[in-house]
Design a protein around this nucleic acid. Structure first.
Length: 232
DNA sequence: GCGACAG
DNA sequence: ATCTTGTCGC
C-alpha cells in the first residue's frame, strides 16, 4: 500500500471508494499497548499543487519527539469538503512508509467517522495502512452537539444521524473545543481518553500540533526532506 | 431549492 | 490551508 494516487479521480469515483472502504473500518476498544503515538499533517502554499507532508513520532505518555518523516509531493486532487483524504492520504502514506519505526497509534488532522459517509481522513488512512488512527479536527464537518463545559477536559457527544460518531473536547479553559472521532481500530471512548492525555499547554493536542509546526518549517525550508530517529 | 461545508 | 495587524486576557 504505497504511492497511492488519486490525481485522476472524479469526485463521483471518490464516493464509491469511500463507501467501499467504510466496510473495513473497525470500531472497538483499544486492544494494543500504547508507547508510541504519532501526529500527521500537511502544509502547502496557497494555489500550489506541492504539498509538504509529515508524521512525527512521540513517546507516550511523555509526548517527547522520538522521530519523524517528511516528504514533498505533487497532488492534483482538489480540496472538496468531505473528500479531504483524496488530497492528503497519498503524501501522508509516503511519509508513513519512510518512518524509522511505526507508531502504535496515529492522530490525523481531520475527522475520522464523524463524516457524512463515515469515512473521514483518519478512517481512510487507518484502513489503507491497516493501523489504529484517531481524527482530531479543529472545526465541525457534520453532526450535532451541545457545547461542552468551559473547563479543560470537558466533552460532549457528537451525534450524526442518531449515532455517536465522536466527541467535542475542551482542551483549554474557555477556548474553542476540538472534534475527536475514531478513525480505525479504536472506539469513541478510548479516542477521547487518549486525546485528553495528549493535551499540553495549547488548544491543539501535541501530536497534531507538533506535526503542524514541523511540516510548516519543512515547507519554509527550515528542515530538509527526509526521515530520522531522534537520539536522546 | 436552501444552507453547510475537515484542510 | 495560508496571509496578516492589532487586541484582549491570563
Amino acid at each position: 500500500m504505497q504511492h497511492l494516487n488519486y490525481d485522476n479521480l472524479k469526485v463521483q469515483d471518490a464516493t464509491i471508494i469511500q463507501n467501499s472502504l467504510r466496510d473495513s473500518i473497525l470500531l472497538q476498544p483499544r486492544n494494543f499497548p500504547l508507547s508510541i503515538i504519532a501526529g500527521a499533517d500537511i502544509s502547502f502554499n496557497k494555489f500550489s499543487t506541492t504539498v509538504y507532508a509529515g508524521i512525527i513520532l512521540l513517546s507516550f505518555p511523555d509526548l517527547l519527539p522520538i522521530g519523524y518523516s517528511l516528504i514533498k509531493k505533487e497532488v492534483l486532487f482538489p480540496y472538496v469538503p468531505g473528500y479531504l483524504a483524496f488530497r492528503e492520504v497519498p503524501p501522508l502514506m509516503d511519509a508513513w512508509e519512510n518512518l524509522p519505526q511505526k507508531p502504535d497509534l496515529l492522530v490525523v488532522d481531520g475527522h475520522g467517522i464523524a463524516h457524512p459517509r463515515r469515512m473521514g481522513i483518519a478512517s481512510h488512512f487507518g484502513v489503507s495502512a491497516d493501523t489504529p488512527t484517531i481524527g482530531c479536527a479543529k472545526t465541525l464537518l457534520c453532526g450535532q452537539y451541545e457545547e461542552p463545559a468551559s473547563t479543560t477536559g470537558s466533552s460532549s457527544p457528537l451525534i450524526y444521524k442518531n449515532e455517536v460518531v465522536g466527541a467535542v473536547l475542551r482542551t483549554k479553559n474557555a477556548v474553542k473545543p476540538v472534534f475527536v472521532s475514531p478513525g480505525h481500530k479504536i472506539d469513541v471512548p478510548d479516542s477521547v481518553d487518549i486525546i485528553k492525555q495528549c493535551i499540553g499547554r495549547y488548544r491543539i493536542p501535541e501530536p497534531t500540533r507538533l506535526a503542524h509546526n514541523m511540516v510548516n518549517q519543512f515547507r519554509l525550508g527550515e528542515i530538509p526532506e527526509g526521515y530520522t530517529a531522534l537520539t536522546r
